[in-house]
Amino acid sequence: MVNQLIATVNKKTYAPLLHQLAHRPNISLMTSAVRVGTTIPEWTLADRFRKAREHAGLSQIELAQAMEVGRSAVARIEQGTATPKRPVALAWAFATGVDWDWLMGVEVPPTPACPHQGSNLGPAD
């Protein structure tokens, strides 16, 4: 089936990609659509801290200066060799503009909508 699909698409553009995908685990080819496996990657605390810094567009040095810590402290946290204390985590969240709960990996249930929101209720006459 994969060979038929490769033969029917533009060989210059799609054939090399489809060939690569056909030989990877957790990937199935369905007609012309490619479906990737259903695994969701786990993000470690270090991953979240690095992603927050990258999202803010800061280098390790710039973030360290903003938090008044050494660059090596930022590097150790991002490598997972050090766990940040609460004040450092709060400073990191503030400096990068990300939610502290997300940064720490805390699952926060969604806030239900206010039942009276938009109802424009006023005092009874």
Rank of each mutant, 00 (worst) to 15 (best):
V36R: 04
V36H: 02
V36F: 13
V36W: 11
G37N: 06
G37V: 00
G37H: 03
G37L: 00
T38A: 15
T38F: 14
T39W: 09
I40C: 02
P41V: 11
P41S: 11
P41T: 09
E42Q: 12
W43M: 05
W43C: 02
W43G: 00
W43T: 06
T44D: 02
T44W: 03
T44M: 06
T44L: 04
T44S: 13
L45S: 00
L45N: 01
L45M: 07
L45V: 01
L45Q: 11
A46C: 02
A46L: 00
A46Q: 04
D47C: 02
D47A: 02
D47V: 00
R48A: 11
R48G: 08
R48S: 10
R48T: 10
R48K: 12
F49G: 02
F49E: 04
R50D: 12
R50H: 13
R50P: 08
K51Q: 14
K51W: 13
K51T: 12
A52Q: 02
A52P: 00
R53L: 10
R53M: 10
R53C: 08
R53I: 05
R53V: 04
R53P: 04
R53A: 10
R53F: 09
R53H: 09
E54N: 08
E54G: 02
E54I: 07
E54R: 10
H55I: 00
H55K: 10
H55R: 09
A56Y: 03
A56W: 04
G57I: 04
G57R: 06
L58C: 08
L58K: 07
S59R: 09
S59Q: 10
S59D: 11
Q60P: 09
Q60R: 12
Q60N: 06
Q60D: 05
I61K: 15
I61F: 15
E62H: 09
E62G: 05
E62A: 15
E62W: 05
L63R: 03
L63F: 05
L63G: 01
L63W: 03
L63H: 01
L63P: 02
L63Y: 05
L63T: 01
A64N: 03
A64T: 04
Q65G: 14
Q65P: 03
A66I: 06
A66W: 03
A66L: 13
A66D: 09
A66Y: 08
A66M: 14
A66S: 14
M67F: 11
M67H: 08
M67Y: 07
M67D: 03
E68Y: 08
E68S: 14
V69S: 06
V69R: 05
V69E: 04
V69F: 09
G70C: 12
G70D: 15
G70R: 12
G70N: 14
G70M: 11
G70V: 05
R71N: 13
R71E: 13
R71W: 04
